[in-house]
């Protein structure tokens, strides 16, 4: 049985620790990390990598033409391109409150697109 050590930089917090993952093929034998969040990150990154995505959608009737938005949870990394296409096509109307759901269950992921701030109607 051959195990190999893989290194990975943790992005959970600003510290940016280097994690050491002991693997046997696809099986993760052990993760050396400074905290539990780091361990969880390593497992997730190897099996189902996800990222928080912040972007914007077109808004009408507000001070600015774009409303900043973000994903309610980390979003599957391979589908980010699709997500961006969806956001490009979206359009909302002012007023909007911070936390409003702009798009629900986007691309069937169960993840919502949330307004990052208030935008009043002008």
């Amino acid at each position: 049985m051959e195990t190999e050590v893989q290194r990975m930089i943790c992005i959970t917090c600003p510290k940016g620790c280097t994690l050491e993952i002991l693997r046997d093929g696809d099986v993760i034998v052990d993760v050396k990390a400074g905290c539990k969040r780091g361990k969880d990150y390593a497992h997730a990154e190897l099996t189902d990598p996800r990222r928080m995505i912040a972007s914007s959608v077109v808004i009408e009737g507000a001070l600015h033409p774009l409303l900043p938005v973000y994903t309610s949870a980390p979003f599957p990394k391979p589908r980010i391109h699709e997500l961006m296409q969806t956001l490009r096509a979206a359009k909302v109307q002012a007023p909007v409150k911070m936390g409003d759901v702009v798009l629900e269950d986007v691309l069937g992921t169960g993840i919502n697109i949330i307004a990052s701030r208030d935008m009043t109607r002008i």
Binding site: S56, V57, V58, P65, L66, L87, R88
Partner: peptide, 13 residues
């Protein structure tokens, strides 16, 4: 000539 600041709208590829 040829010194515009902006190229397109952010959301319009």
């Amino acid at each position: 000539h040829n010194s515009a600041f902006l190229q397109r709208e952010t959301k319009n590829l």
